[in-house]
Amino acid sequence: MPWMVIGESVRGTGHERRSQPCQDAWAWKEINGDHLCVAVADGAGSATHSDVGARTAVATAVERVAQSIIAPPESMTNSPMLDSPTGELERWRSPLTQVIEAVQQELKLTAQQQEISLRNLACTLLIMLWTPSGIVALQVGDGAIIGRNHRGQMVALTQPQQGEYANQTLFVIEDNAADQAQFVYWSSNTSNHGDTEDDGNNGGDRPCADNISPLSHIALFSDGLQRLALELPSGKPFDPFFAPLFSFLDQARDSLSNSTDPKEIFNNAANTLETFLRSPRVTARTDDDLTLVLITLAPNSLAP
């Protein structure tokens, strides 16, 4: 496969103390061999079934994104193929809005089937779609999606969305989730990238065009890691946090080419990541559930 994806969701020590399940979930899917979709969701602490909500949200999100690529809706095929980041952002807006609506529908259905209120399935939702022409990021709530370009510079594709208080955020079950979502496109076309320096702070609803070269690495994470991984309140990715993680990912990817057992490499890498997320150094700083997904291009990449 053209991407190396390593990810883990682990139950927070605070959840262990309170006998709560892990309310984070993540899922990924490779589509047509040239698209990759990764989704992360963090269930609300107060919601009784938010672990179910989070799992349902990520599974539905990657499935619906896959459908919109395999059988593109009319709005996509009809829209002119503008060879610009703005055009790409607009081309994806309608299908991804439909993905959020589909997730909401699925959560409503789950609530009905389990005879619980929709509020008890509340969760955030982060979606990353890597296409041959660029990367689309969509986020409802906290956590963040960050990237690193070929020159090693870090950029924030999205930012944690918080309310006035530290324990408030936006959830995908809200009627206005699609309107409030952060929606970003990052072109993989080198000619679309200027040489301007960037402050690494790109949250917002816009194409990231006049920026620093295509991305080679992406990380998605839930809010439990936010205070360790970002410089707040700017939301700038903290380089010494991500650089070793991406080196670790690169090392795993490179060892794939001379291995006869890729599965073992994936398992080992996932175990190493899990050990890290459960390490005392991490749990001394955060007792929340933690999800971290690391993505990079693999040797047989179809990307330019």
Binding site: A166, R227, L228, L230, E231, P244, F248, S255, N271, T272
Partner: peptide, 20 residues
């Protein structure tokens, strides 16, 4: 790759003010 990659030692955390 080897499992010896020690993320625990390599990864450095951002220092953010605690929420109050």
């Amino acid at each position: 790759m080897s499992t010896s990659f020690n993320l625990d030692e390599a990864v450095i955390f951002a220092e953010n003010p605690e929420p109050r």
